[in-house]
Design a protein around this nucleic acid. Sequence first.
DNA 1: TTTACATTTGAGACCGGTCTCACAGGAAAA
DNA 2: TTTTCCTGTGAGACCGGTCTCAAATGTAAA
Lengths: 362, 362
Amino acid sequence: MKRPPKAPSITVSDVARQAKVSKATAARVLGGYGRVSKTVRAAVLEAAKALDYRPNELARSMTTGRSGSIGVVVGDIENPFFSLAVRGISDVARLSGINVILANSGEQVEAEKNAIRVLMAKQVDGLIVTPAQSGEIAHLVEIARSACPLALLDRALPDLDVDTVTVDDRDAALRATRILTRAGHTRIAYMTAAVLSGDFRGSESRINTSTVRERILGFLDACRESGIERAERNIHFGSGRSETSRAVMHGLLKSPDRPTAILASDSVVALELFKAIRECGLRIPQDMSLITFHDADWTSVTTPPITVIDQPVYALGKSVAELLIRRLKGDDRPPERIILPTTIIERMSVAQAPDVARQATA
Amino acid sequence: MKRPPKAPSITVSDVARQAKVSKATAARVLGGYGRVSKTVRAAVLEAAKALDYRPNELARSMTTGRSGSIGVVVGDIENPFFSLAVRGISDVARLSGINVILANSGEQVEAEKNAIRVLMAKQVDGLIVTPAQSGEIAHLVEIARSACPLALLDRALPDLDVDTVTVDDRDAALRATRILTRAGHTRIAYMTAAVLSGDFRGSESRINTSTVRERILGFLDACRESGIERAERNIHFGSGRSETSRAVMHGLLKSPDRPTAILASDSVVALELFKAIRECGLRIPQDMSLITFHDADWTSVTTPPITVIDQPVYALGKSVAELLIRRLKGDDRPPERIILPTTIIERMSVAQAPDVARQATA
DNA sequence: TTTACATTTGAGACCGGTCTCACAGGAAAA
DNA sequence: TTTTCCTGTGAGACCGGTCTCAAATGTAAA
């Protein structure tokens, strides 16, 4: 183990010596605990200032057992959804004098496990996680059982009863899909970046990441409602930013029975779709209607602007952080599951289904 | 001081006892240092597994003096520029087994100072900062003098000789402005979110945030080059996302001698501008040409798509992180100032200046 | 067999704080 | 005046690791 020159920092003992009091007394005024007389306090404070004393938070954490920081594991900070949520979290944390250690899972369970291990070793006081996958949650269950409070962001896990903040995904998907069905669309695709472990055979049982499951349920509800059969065939997983998913999109858009409307699960997918649709020479909304989750900034400036499901992303982050910090302060109410409402912002990316339009003209 | 029930965790001593060796020996195998015989190592490892031992990183940091984490202070994680840079940083950090503690300054010096104080107290091994302001850098100078390596991201400070990674802002602005001047524009505005302390009277001397200064210099170079006088009158500071700056934009766009072309300092400003331009009933590029720094994702999907200065944002983050980590490993070469190249992606947001076009028709 | 040296192990100090406990001295109560 | 209680202070243990140092053991060379 290498041993770089340690910067010899000023400690309580140094201050104590300078102020001619005991270490214990100096620690009391510097640490702000216990009782100290005014005169001694002043003397210690003066000595501290003279020496330019800076507390060592690490040492403090060692004895107190609390580090004053929380760990946040998100899928991808680059995704504006997460950066906004993180913003919400860190704003709240700062107010409580807590800081945030951020880790990226890249939506990989292994990376997530690893990040959590590291954060735990750093003795974070609490953890906010956006679980990458719902299949492997043993590591999360373990945290939940431990003394370290855990809160889930955006994605609930049915088998994990901890504080969770999500949005009303099912209802949002239902309402969004209805906009499409009411415009006469019958071939509607749902595209998500999530990957499905195993096959999806019309049974939603295998999907237990709440976000994905709820949205699909809502989507299917709306389809069923308007008599669309076998709607589950049009659910596409794994539509990320990769080259392969781009190829899949193109394939879908060029197929003869291509959908006439698409619901995208997040703004990153939607942006890729938007580009792909244009590249395929299709027009929005005439040839393809599009609705996406997340009111990303770009959705209002495209031509046409995109109809979106506006999720309260900042509030999402703010709420989990508040929930978690409440736990940190000793709250031991049963776990809460908060579901925030979404609104749909209707813009110009939805048109009547082509065949319906044709019929109308005929 | 409250005293929540400490979760009694498994320590080296516990493992040592279980393995029937001394604490020192157990520590050696668990900490991976010193020499231990195979048999003993196996015994300790087994005991550790049986007890489910987890190292306490904090305690480790206490003695080693290194925390294994670096602090990153950015202006605003919400800005895609920063989130991408942070992504670059954290990817590099992860590779070195270092983690990142993120803090938002909100571009406020006070918040920045505070964040740095907290991070230092947490004994971060190094610091990456995007200085919010260039006027007050005493706190940064102090860090630089201390044993804690400091690196600057995106914004250089002339008076602070530390590792710095920026882009060739001056040249980028020059080239971008030239595109506008060559299209015949003479009333060109430069809009930045940065705020100027005091007045800006054509002298760039007061601006010592490199990014802003260099860009303005490049802008003025190009203007001078094509004989545009008093170009500095068209430099607008403080064009953020606030309501007031929106009003300022509208005022500018509606004034009789409004510019015919605008260069925006970042994609957030540009997006606001884009909206404002449309709200004022102006068309891009016919009535207003627009170029912006940062190839944000939305710039390619608008109608028309926006000509941008493509900064290597991810690489920017990657580079500072590499520089900083090199320092952490003991490198003591003189501070390095890396300037990364930019490219201009010409899209459809620049047209001939209206008057030039008119003259051509006449 | 003795000496020399390398390897493995244990004891305990240390990092920089917090906190328990004992005790001195002053004020209030008896 | 004596007893009781409270306040302010100091001594030192403790948190969970790392690391120095010396002792113990084993092995090779003389």
